[in-house]
Design a protein around this nucleic acid. Structure first.
Lengths: 129, 129
DNA sequence: ATCCGTGCAAAGAATTTGCATACAT
DNA sequence: ATGTATGCAAATTCTTTGCACGGAT
């Protein structure tokens, strides 16, 4: 049975109020201001717990640490190949992809994750100068 | 300048002849049969080198080690949430996704990676018994 | 002769875990 | 009172890297 904890509430609140797709380390640095003794292990434990319960989303870029997102509406992410920044992509969820993929597939497909790659606005501007 | 090495050739050949999306460890175990002294570090170095040169593809599932694929035609992968197996999905490449994503996006999108999740044929059958 | 690739082992990054204690129920 | 959550540090997993030596050009 799940018990309340102030630490977990603080972690969840941080994600709810910051849609910047922070890593565990960044969540840790920030929640630390409210709970100076909190440990990175506790942050990981709670991020996993929240992700398992479907209260937050885990974003795994190919390399580097995972990012977390409290925005549960189905949406896609962009990963900047230059600075690593994670941004939301404003486009409709492409649910039909699962159906298309299922056509020639002998198992069951429940969902998909799409990540877009390229240059974020900031890095793109920098390159053009 | 890139110099030939028998180890790299063997690694590439293994990937060319096995479309099972092996991990570095599995490539290592197999190439070891031809080069008993090869080290895991060398396998990693060459997989990175081949991936950078675009000769092979790296597949990063959310958790666990990366997988590698010598099939360079644009295609999608399925990741079994039960056994972790990586399978090819037989469907057309959805190039239009990049255009749709670009519409409301202020940077540059060059490509996307989509991974489908669910139960592979084997795990699905097991579940039904 | 030059210098890149290798094997080995140690280091590194990200994450998980065992344990004693603190806290929620 | 019971049992989950925490803090701490050690352990784990996956991958990278420094170094001396061997092999390709």
């Amino acid at each position: 049975m799940l018990k309340y904890s102030r630490q977990r509430e603080s972690i969840k609140k941080y994600l709810d109020t910051h849609r910047t797709h922070p890593t565990a380390e960044i969540v840790y640095q920030n929640v630390k201001q409210e709970f100076p003794n909190i440990s990175l292990g506790t942050v990981y434990r709670n991020l996993n717990l929240l992700a398992e319960r479907g209260e937050i989303l885990r974003i795994s870029p190919g390399n580097g640490p995972d990012h977390y997102d409290a925005d549960l509406t189905p949406h896609y992410h962009f990963l900047c190949t230059e600075c690593g920044q994670v941004l939301d992509i404003d486009m409709e969820h492409q649910a039909q992809l699962d159906d298309i993929a299922m056509k020639q597939f002998d198992g069951i497909i429940t969902n998909h994750v799409t990540q877009f790659f390229g240059l974020c606005p900031k890095c793109n501007n920098t390159k053009m100068n």
